[in-house]
């Protein structure tokens, strides 16, 4: 696939993802803040779940996307795929940060602690550090191909953290509650499941939309810099 065709495709179809995400999230927020019931044990504060879980799930989705894009890059060596990797990593860092913040705010009134070093939280913090390291590495390597290759390898290695995050609450002793949606079934009452599902799907689609926008942004910036670089060298000669 040529870069311009991909970018053209992203530009053409991005709006549909944006519209679907905004619709799902608006209904999700309305049901989450207005119509859903407080929990029998936590009370109103359960509403934090409707932003916390979507953010965390999307952070993991974003990292999984980064993983597959990195493999794609190593296979095809296409610079525009590297732009997409860069975009996915930035978004993954954003959603990971959001997940950490909303989690801390949910932890204080329920657990009585902003932060604990239990397996779920520790493995999620490692995801955050991996992404910080990944983006730092990108800024320090100049050569485009070298940068793309090293970063892709790093992202692929870091992927082992993802199943650890997901299953940590099932495998080990954890203050964090186990999975609410698992092979055991769904442990969320219907009127709370609605905002939960709408927000989870909505934020995931929003991520897809943001990835499309950000990939274009990074590609265009790259294009613009390359062009300006040529202007500069032409001026020197």
């Amino acid at each position: 696939m040529t870069a311009t065709r991909l970018i053209g495709w992203l530009r053409k179809y991005e709006k549909w993802f944006g519209i679907v995400a905004a619709s799902l999230m608006s209904v999700g927020l309305y049901t989450g803040l207005v119509t859903s019931s407080p929990d029998y044990y936590q009370g109103e504060v359960v509403r934090i779940m409707y932003v916390h879980v979507p953010f965390v799930q999307t952070a993991m989705l974003a990292y999984a996307t980064l993983f597959f894009l990195s493999i794609w890059y190593l296979w095809k060596r296409d610079a525009v795929v590297d732009n997409a990797c860069h975009a996915a990593a930035g978004l993954a860092l954003f959603f990971t940060g959001g997940g950490l913040i909303t989690g801390a705010i949910w932890g204080k009134p329920t657990w009585n602690a902003w932060w604990v070093w239990d397996p779920r939280l520790t493995s999620f913090a490692i995801l955050f550090m991996t992404l910080v390291g990944y983006l730092m590495l990108r800024t320090f390597l100049d050569d485009q191909e070298k940068r793309a290759t090293f970063c892709a390898i790093l992202a692929i290695i870091g992927f082992i953290d993802l199943p650890i995050i997901h299953f940590s609450v099932e495998w080990w002793r954890s203050l964090h509650q186990p999975l609410s949606v698992s092979t055991r079934g769904v442990s969320i009452a219907p009127n709370m499941l609605l905002p939960f599902a709408l927000m989870s799907i909505g934020v995931s689609i929003l991520f897809t939309y943001m990835l499309m926008v950000r990939t274009q942004m990074l590609y265009l910036e790259h294009l613009f810099e390359a062009k300006q670089g040529r202007f500069l060298s032409e001026g020197e000669s």
Partner: peptide
């Protein structure tokens, strides 16, 4: 009813959705 803790709820919504909106 249980303690509402609405400060935490609005904090969580604002600190996640407002940066999201600005970022986008």
């Amino acid at each position: 009813a249980l303690i509402p803790n609405y400060g935490f709820i609005s904090g969580a919504y604002l600190l996640s959705l407002v940066p999201l909106a600005f970022f986008l």
